[in-house]
């Protein structure tokens, strides 16, 4: 087992164990903060796969943006001084059925697919190539996503200002 295997299992452990806490914690704040470690672990996986840019974007967007917003939301919408932010388990049977079906499907997919395996060549850097692709082959999607984000921004501002 080489250095990279050890690092992979470390990240896998962090990701999976914190993901378990996310779904099982009674306190929503715990779930929110555990999600941080899950996202962080996934970023680590990306680094090991040689996609440095995606890993940093993962950190930036999910940890820096969405997660902080989530924590803010949880903190501001609940009683902040008392720990009364609880989440319980309901609908156990339907959830169990759903999980089992999904798990079986995923395992079937994993075992039955004819995976295209080739020795991985880890690129030195992905930023330049990604930038080129985004502005040539995928420029339409890229621009559309930009417009979508702009619409979301304008929409949020108009909702926030409606009462005036």
């Amino acid at each position: 087992m080489g250095l990279y295997d050890i690092i992979f299992y470390l990240f896998a452990l962090v990701t999976v164990s914190s993901a378990v806490v996310v779904v099982s914690a009674k306190n929503i704040i715990y779930s929110a903060f555990s999600l941080l470690f899950t996202l962080f672990g996934v970023a680590g996986m990306y680094v090991l796969l040689g996609s440095d840019f995606i890993a940093i974007v993962q950190l930036m967007v999910y940890v820096g943006g969405i997660l902080i917003l989530l924590i803010f939301g949880v903190m501001l919408t609940n009683k902040v001084t008392n720990v009364e932010i609880k989440s319980g388990s309901i609908q156990l049977l339907p959830a169990l059925i759903g999980v089992v079906v999904l798990a079986v499907l995923l395992i079937m997919l994993m075992t039955n697919t004819n995976w295209h395996i080739q020795p991985g060549v880890i690129p030195q850097t992905t930023t330049k190539e990604l930038g080129k692709l985004l502005l040539t082959d995928y420029v339409l999607v890229f621009e559309l996503l930009g417009i979508l984000l702009l619409i979301a921004l304008v929409g949020a501002a108009s909702i926030a200002r409606r009462e005036e």
Partner: peptide, 13 residues
């Protein structure tokens, strides 16, 4: 290769 981007991103931790 993504040095400065990494620095901005990690500050969210």
């Amino acid at each position: 290769d993504v040095g400065i981007f990494f620095v901005i991103a990690i500050s969210s931790v």
